[in-house]
């Protein structure tokens, strides 16, 4: 966990999504340190988090991650938090805000999706079929970077490659294979649609123009479900405007936070 910015500023929490650690916010978070008390953290299993805190049983649902968020909120005694969540952390933020709405002033959901898998039964389009998600989970197996780091020298017969260099490479997204696998499973198979309507915290949705992971229709769905939410469609493409278009992302968040409500 990293805490920066004005100690007396109103608190702002940044939560990274499935994939890489808190470095995802490296271009965004610094823009708020002048005005806010900025809290960055890594989900368990990522970055410098304590892997010993992980257990497969405990982290069997996104609620466990929401509990971690609330633990930080309590630990630091944060009130009126602006919670900025990317990707799956959008939903983690939603779950946390449902449990303790008093603690949160705003939710900023970057590329949120309550459910990735299409639900033909009620016409919901999440963007993926069940088979596609299975394929993704497969590719996580073959590519989780912690695993490939250990196996790569064998495969490539590059025993002379310094381990250190290999470790530094890709380190921002390196995580324990078990954690990565389960987190991917949770991220892509959870269904939090029913939770959206219960959100009672002012919410900003940042939707990229061309996001294969969370398509426009999903952003609109989230906007439609969360009462009083605001949807801003960014020019940025892809799923990570925080990296690919930090300026636009920051501007959208600031504009939202400035707007009188």
């Amino acid at each position: 966990m990293t805490e920066t910015g004005r100690a007396d500023g109103s608190p702002m929490m940044f939560a990274h999504g499935y994939g890489c650690d808190q470095n995802m916010w490296r271009f965004v978070a610094p823009e708020f340190t002048d005005t806010h008390r900025v809290v960055l953290f890594d989900h368990v299993g990522y970055g410098r988090s304590d892997l010993a805190a992980y257990s497969t049983d405990r982290y069997a649902s996104l609620d466990a991650y929401a509990s971690d968020v609330l633990d930080i909120v309590h630990e630091l005694d944060l009130w009126d938090v602006t919670f900025v969540g990317h990707s799956v952390s959008s939903m983690i933020g939603v779950l946390a805000a449902l449990r303790e709405p008093d603690r949160f002033a705003n939710l900023v959901l970057v590329g949120p999706s309550p459910r990735y898998i299409d639900d033909p039964a009620d016409g919901y389009v999440g963007g993926f079929t069940r088979a596609e998600i299975d394929e993704l989970l497969d590719s996580v197996d073959s590519n989780y970077l912690g695993w490939s780091r250990a196996i790569a020298p064998v495969i490539m017969a590059n025993a002379d490659r310094p381990e250190l260099a290999e470790e530094l490479t890709n380190s921002f997204c390196r995580t324990d294979p078990v954690v990565a696998r389960q987190f991917a499973q949770l991220t892509f198979t959870s269904d939090n649609r029913a939770d959206l309507a219960k959100v009672a915290v002012p919410t900003l949705i940042l939707q990229c123009s061309d996001d294969v992971i969370a398509p426009m229709s999903v952003g609109e769905y989230v906007h439609g479900q969360i009462p009083g939410s605001e949807l801003v469609v960014l020019n940025a493409t892809g799923h990570c405007p925080n990296l690919s278009a930090p300026v636009e992302t920051v501007a959208a968040i600031k504009a939202y936070l400035r707007a009188p409500r």
């Binding site: 999504g17 994939g19 890489c20 996580v140 294969v212 799923h239």
Partner: peptide
């Protein structure tokens, strides 16, 4: 890329490229 690859691209590949 295959679908899995596309998601992987968005969640790992792209971010890493921009960060390192």
């Amino acid at each position: 890329l295959s679908v899995g690859g596309r998601i992987y691209y968005e969640t790992h590949y792209g971010p890493l490229l921009r960060m390192q």
